[in-house]
Structure formats: structure tokens, C-alpha cells
Amino acid sequence: MKNIAILCSGGDVSGMNPAIKHFVEYALEKELTPYFVYDGFKGLIENKIVKATHKDVAGIINRGGTILGSARSKKFMEKKFREVAKKNLDALNIDMLVVLGGDGSFRGMDIFYKEQGIKFCGIPSTIDNDINGTEYCLGVDTALNVIKESIDNIRDTAASFSRAFVIETMGRDCGYLALVSALTCGAELCLIPEVEYDLKEYEKSFKKQIKNGRRYFIAVVSEGIKEESSEIAKWFEEKIGFESRATILGHTQRGGNPTIYDRLMAYKFVNHALDGMLEGRDESVICYTKKGFEYKSIDEVANKKYQLDDKLLSYLKKF
């Protein structure tokens, strides 16, 4: 039997545990021996590598985060420590890895493969949805549902007190979470890093809406815009004349019970990842595109900047 391992790297997302569960199930179905690597690349170096069974993944499908833990490792950037990681894998006859993570994790594995020969397949896993080459990353749907619940709850208070609420989402330099949330939650304002904005352009329209009876405003902003969310709230008070509050959702967006869609996508991502390696794809990332699932190179995925879909960006004109 061939041996295969799985690890999580970078930020955790809801959807990793369903992926880990199916990894064990599908590996055994394919007559592979599955192993866990705890604490990401750090675990490779510290030899936190353990054989996995069905018992290890029972009851985890509904849990957010990752039972394997995740950690960033500066040591893995050094060749001498990558050599240690290779020796640890060799001792267990593991020459295939499934990596749940983002573009930084994939770049690390690219070096590891070219230098040490460990085959791998990456599964895009980040709520930011900012990995080039894939329309969807594991964990995004759960994050969007957490944001949706938060905005819907905040709207109740906004309507009750006639206030403006500025809600900040995560996403680094990618406005995907903010834009999709604003569109699907009926926000009056959406600001994202990809599009330049001038708040003065909204003043006339918002004041007219107030005159016509508007009692509250919901603004969704991405953490990567040029101003702090508190500054946008201050603008509402000083220029629009509306009492305002800023709410930073922060890491609540990363956790929570994985949605049905994320559980299903975890299943499909894992199937394709293992099938790809068994078919001879030694270094790839499995991506979800308009054509379905595709295997893409590290260069295409990790070394090119992600761009929001033009059609999705065109919807921003409603704000």
C-alpha cells in the first residue's frame, strides 16, 4: 500500500474538517494508507505525523476549523529544515501530500517538490477567495453565511434606532466577501480595494434617500480599503447626519458549522486531489472553474494576482 498524508497551512477555514474526514475515507477506499500531519509545515519538521483511521475522523464533519491545527513556519523556508521534513516523511514511506491552504502554502510546496521530490496536490482553502485560477476556495460559503447572519442581525438594530452601521469584512486586498455580502444582504454602500471611491459622490443621493423616508443605512466595507471602518462611520455622522456605528466582524468569519455547500466542495476537492496524484500528476492545485474542476500549475495559481470576476465587479455600480 502507498502512503499519503494531509496537512493544513495558513488560516483555518470551515470546510477543512469535512475535507480531512473524506481524505481518510477516500484514501482507504483507494487502498492508500492515510496519515495526518499536525500543525502544518511545522509538524513536518517536528515529525508530528500520525497514521489515521476512521475513528480519528468520526464526528468532525460539523466542526469548524481543523482538528490537525495549522501553523506558519519560518523554518520551512530554510533548506536544512526541509531536508528534515523529507527524512521524517521517508521514514514512513510517505511520498504524497494533500495540502489545504493558500498561495503561500502552495509556493512552499512547490519548492519542497522540486527540491525533495515529495508529490502534492493543493486544495485552495481561504475565506478571502483570492487564489488565482479558481472560482471558489474551500470555506468561502460558510464565511459568507456568517457575514449574512451578522448583517441581518445588525439591520434589526439599525432600523430600530435609525442608525448607519458600517460592517467590515475580512479579505486582505480582495473585496470578494464584502461585495458578495453587500449584494446579497441589501446594503446601501459597498467599498472594496479593487475600485477607487470618493465618499462625496454618495452624499447627495443618501441625503435625498433620508428626505424620502430612509431610516437606516447598511454599509459593507472590506478591510483592505484606504480608510478605517471607523472613518466611514464618522463620515456618516458628519456629512450625512446619521448616528453611526462600526462593526468589525474579524475572525468570527473563519469559524462556525460548515455549510452544506462547503461540505460538498470538500468532498469533491479531495476526490480530485487524490485521483490526480494517482493518475500521475505530481505537482498541481485542484481548482474549481466555470468548466468544472481543473488541475493547474503552481505558477498559474500562486504566482499571479487574483482578479475579481468582471461580471461580479459590474454589480458594484448599483451602489
Score class of each variant (00 low, 15 high):
85 A>R: 01
109 M>H: 03
198 D>A: 12
33 T>N: 13
119 K>A: 13
151 I>N: 03
72 R>L: 14
28 L>V: 13
244 S>C: 12
295 Y>W: 13
52 A>W: 05
155 R>S: 05
170 M>Y: 10
97 L>V: 06
92 L>R: 10
30 K>E: 13
164 A>N: 14
146 V>I: 12
283 E>K: 07
50 V>R: 08
15 G>C: 09
288 Y>E: 06
51 K>W: 01
4 I>H: 01
15 G>L: 09
67 I>M: 04
199 L>A: 14
184 T>E: 15
70 S>D: 09
36 F>H: 04
79 K>S: 08
115 E>N: 13
255 G>M: 11
97 L>K: 04
219 A>L: 01
300 E>P: 02
186 G>A: 12
200 K>V: 13
196 E>A: 14
261 Y>E: 15
256 G>T: 15
125 S>C: 07
280 G>P: 00
32 L>D: 08
107 R>L: 12
189 L>Y: 14
82 R>V: 03
126 T>R: 06
128 D>K: 03
103 D>C: 08
17 N>T: 12
5 A>W: 05
196 E>H: 13
43 G>K: 10
201 E>Q: 11
202 Y>T: 07
313 L>Y: 06
160 S>I: 14
161 F>E: 02
184 T>V: 11
5 A>V: 08
141 D>H: 15
5 A>R: 01
11 G>Q: 15
176 Y>C: 10
155 R>Y: 12
186 G>R: 10
77 M>C: 05
145 N>Q: 08
211 K>R: 04
25 E>N: 11
73 S>I: 03
153 N>Y: 12
146 V>N: 09
89 L>A: 03
73 S>H: 04
277 M>D: 02
140 V>K: 03
43 G>T: 11
99 V>K: 02
284 S>C: 09
253 Q>H: 13
191 L>N: 15
76 F>M: 05
261 Y>K: 15
307 Q>S: 03
37 V>C: 13
